[in-house]
Design a protein around this nucleic acid. Sequence first.
DNA 1: CTCTTGCCTAGATAAGTGTCAAATTAGACA
DNA 2: TGTCTAATTTGACACTTATCTAGGCAAGAG
Lengths: 121, 121
Amino acid sequence: MSKQGLPTVDACCAPLTREPLPESEATELAPLFKAIADPVRLRLLSLIACHEGGEACVCDLTGAFDLTPPTISHHLKVLRQAGLVESERRGTWVYYWLNPAVLARMSALLTPASKAFAETA
Amino acid sequence: MSKQGLPTVDACCAPLTREPLPESEATELAPLFKAIADPVRLRLLSLIACHEGGEACVCDLTGAFDLTPPTISHHLKVLRQAGLVESERRGTWVYYWLNPAVLARMSALLTPASKAFAETA
DNA sequence: CTCTTGCCTAGATAAGTGTCAAATTAGACA
DNA sequence: TGTCTAATTTGACACTTATCTAGGCAAGAG
């Protein structure tokens, strides 16, 4: 269940500010940011990452929100389909963990050019 | 026109993977990612950043898309309201430039913890 | 087998989003 | 003043999304 067409992470990591982003790459990257463009999903990612062993089962996550289990399940599915997390069933529980390479790619894309960054920081 | 309640960039930069993201911070950060969660807006950001002098007028941008000027204007407004870009009118033209501090904050948030990152990279 | 628990899927609904055409504002210039 | 160009605002539309309730499947306990 943890495998369902993860996006390829081949085109890699030239910051936005270095050269104009090609349309194809923008089309590929936008869904990644859309996946984390929600407070619940941002917190889910963080909760999973910070949980013991770098993974968490759904029952570890639902308690942190005022939302029904199906809604949490929905958000986890969005994260999984974007390739940001992977999951596996172990007995009764389903565990989720981060795919750090995808996060790294997103982070690198947003790295401001050193020149522009120096102007304000 | 370039000033309309830019979000405060006070809470800063602890990566998602370091400690559980507080709800308040998630609520503040999600709109930033939502603003760039669109292929057109990603390319707009990149085009602005890479343009001569780090700024571009709207007429420099519209040609890169198969979209009408009002649509480009709409996307620029979304970026401006999120605080990712600022703008100023100079005579006939309106110029846009990046706010690199906001981009830096977003990038830092997504920086994978070194341990988790080493496992895959 | 039956019951319970953990998680997911399906369907419905209200709210949000991307796009365009039409109308509007702002500045430059004759 | 009048007209042209640049950019935005408004209003409408189709499409997407976040959430819930109801129901279903899988695994373990009895």
